[in-house]
């Protein structure tokens, strides 16, 4: 199962991070290859983005279902392909280190199904951890910029 987890230390309080993360509109454009998203309700949203698979780019549409909003420490979600046969999930977790330091972790776990599943999963083995890393780093960078603290 292609998956990736990336953790970074952020020089901000866990509350500041939660305030940012709990509104999808804040970080949606930071998803690598982001095209658009639509929030259907508090827990459901649809997304389109262009994934850079290295040798080619693929536009995919997917649906995200938030399973848990655990303020201030975790957002856990499922995802499923609307344009292609894949499903999975992921989370953002925040762990307080001090009043001004938080460990932030992003996780993605995606598995392709259907006839082409074995081949697509070989591609995802590299793509998924790379995306988890890039998204986590992009969120941390944006948080630091918005709060005028060094990355």
């Amino acid at each position: 199962m292609p998956q990736g987890t990336h953790t970074l230390s952020v020089p901000l309080s866990i509350e500041t991070i939660w305030e940012f993360v709990q509104d999808m509109n804040n970080w949606a454009p930071l998803v690598p290859g982001y095209i658009e998203h639509e929030i259907l309700n508090e827990n459901e949203s649809t997304w389109a983005f262009k994934g850079d698979l290295g040798f080619m780019k693929k536009t995919v549409k997917l649906k995200i279902d938030i399973k848990e909003w655990n303020e201030p420490s975790a957002v856990i979600f499922d995802l499923s392909g609307l344009s292609d046969n894949f499903k999975g999930g992921g989370y953002f977790k925040a762990e307080k280190v001090s009043d001004n330091e938080t460990l932030m972790t992003g996780n993605l776990d995606i598995t392709a199904g259907g006839m082409m599943g074995p081949m697509v999963n070989q591609i995802l083995v590299k793509f998924v951890p790379q995306t988890a890393t890039e998204l986590t780093e992009a969120i941390v960078t944006k948080l630091c910029e918005d709060n005028n603290v060094p990355v």
């Binding site: 262009k50 693929k58 536009t59």
Partner: peptide
């Protein structure tokens, strides 16, 4: 399949 691109062109 318009969802695929190769070197910035629809493949």
């Amino acid at each position: 399949d318009p969802t695929f691109e190769y070197e910035d062109n629809v493949m």
